[in-house]
Design a protein around this nucleic acid. Sequence first.
DNA 1: GCCAACGTTGGC
DNA 2: GCCAACGTTGGC
Length: 232
Amino acid sequence: MPPKKRTRSSAKSNKHTDADAQHGEGSDDVAQLKTGKRKRSAGVKSDVEKNKNDDGRKTSCSHWLMKSEPESRIENGVDVKFGIEDLKVLPDQTGCWDGVRNYQARNFMRDMKVGQQAFFYHSNCKEPGIAGLMKIVKEAYVDHTQFDKKDAHYDPSSKADNPKWSMVDVQFERMTKRFIPLTELKKYHLQHKAKGGPLKDMALFTRARLSVQPLTAEEYDFILSLENEDPI
DNA sequence: GCCAACGTTGGC
DNA sequence: GCCAACGTTGGC
């Protein structure tokens, strides 16, 4: 459910710049509590700290998986459909990944750096799975849709002087050589869980519902290698 | 459309 | 701060 069809061209010229965004930080993660973790050293806003995501998983992940729905669905009166084909036809094949309303997912987006790669994952649809590749072309800044009453992901609890939600800009890179279905990833996940292998802890299976998730280099490479293999 | 998983909210 | 109720995600 992330992005909307919003065009990015505007994003680039948008008035909201990274500066504003700055990480809305104050918002500090209420969410984190959930996992009990709360690490984030108090106060340390900068996240340059990093290299460890909040679940402590591996170190600096530099690859990502981002979910979006390729089929029409109305939310708050608005169609949230945004598949990889929709990204591809935007000016510059670039769009903003708006609409993320989950703290963990948001925090992962705030960790993203320009140039990193992400899989475009189709969710909540007939054939869920990885459809293509994109790259991060603009780091986290304020998601303006949180203030827009007409938007599918309007958040009345977010205040302009302390925005809760961020987004990044992504650019279409290419379709995967073949669609990599969730079912296939799951088979590998189970297999790897039993006997070892790169997908044994893949977030897609260990963290249900997380719409923006990190991949280790091993996970990313393995999944990409499936492009050249026959489906199992 | 169903429903399991799990995040969020709010009463206490 | 706990936890039950509620809401959302997303596979099937």
